[in-house]
Simulated assay, not measured.
Amino acid sequence: MQTDPETGKTVGWEPVGQSAFAKFFEEARERLPGAAPGTYELCGPEVNGDPEQLGEHRLVPMPPRRSSATSRVTSTA
């Protein structure tokens, strides 16, 4: 966890076991049996004001990050 010097907001990864959101994580995990390995974002009514308006806690898969080498476009013209 780090604090953004410009905004003062805390950013980063937090182990779910020590999080105040642990019970919401468990609730969301129960809705996702047999989930594929990967990175998920916890979303729902008690998380960041529920901007997704899900109405229930869910684990939303995050797309894989692309490296700058794979996202670069070069021209041969």
Rank of each mutant, 00 (worst) to 15 (best):
M1F: 05
M1G: 01
Q2R: 02
T3H: 09
T3C: 06
D4Q: 05
P5A: 15
P5Y: 12
P5Q: 14
T7R: 09
G8L: 09
K9F: 08
K9N: 12
K9P: 00
T10M: 06
V11G: 04
V11A: 00
V11Q: 07
G12F: 10
W13C: 09
P15N: 00
V16A: 15
V16L: 15
V16W: 13
G17H: 09
Q18H: 11
Q18G: 15
S19W: 08
S19V: 06
S19Y: 09
A20Y: 03
A22Y: 15
F24G: 02
F25R: 08
F25W: 04
E26L: 15
E26M: 06
E27A: 14
E27C: 11
E27R: 06
A28K: 02
A28W: 06
R29E: 11
R29A: 14
E30V: 13
R31A: 09
R31T: 03
R31K: 08
P33R: 05
P33C: 01
G34S: 06
G34Q: 03
G34Y: 07
A35N: 05
A35C: 03
A35L: 12
A35S: 13
A36N: 02
A36S: 07
P37A: 04
G38C: 01
G38S: 07
E41M: 12
E41W: 09
E41T: 07
E41N: 12
C43I: 08
G44F: 04
G44R: 06
E46F: 12
V47K: 01
N48R: 11
N48I: 03
G49A: 01
G49C: 02
G49W: 08
D50Q: 02
L54H: 08
L54M: 08
E56N: 10
E56D: 10
L59I: 06
V60F: 04
V60C: 03
P61K: 01
P61C: 05
P61E: 01
M62W: 00
P63S: 09
P63D: 12
P63G: 03
P63A: 14
R65Y: 12
R65S: 06
R65E: 12
S67F: 02
S67P: 02
S67A: 12
S68L: 14
S68N: 10
S68Q: 15
A69R: 12
A69I: 02
A69Y: 00
T70M: 14
S71T: 15
V73S: 14
V73D: 07
T74N: 05
T74Q: 08
T74A: 08
S75D: 15
S75Q: 13
S75L: 13
A77Y: 13
A77N: 12
A77T: 12
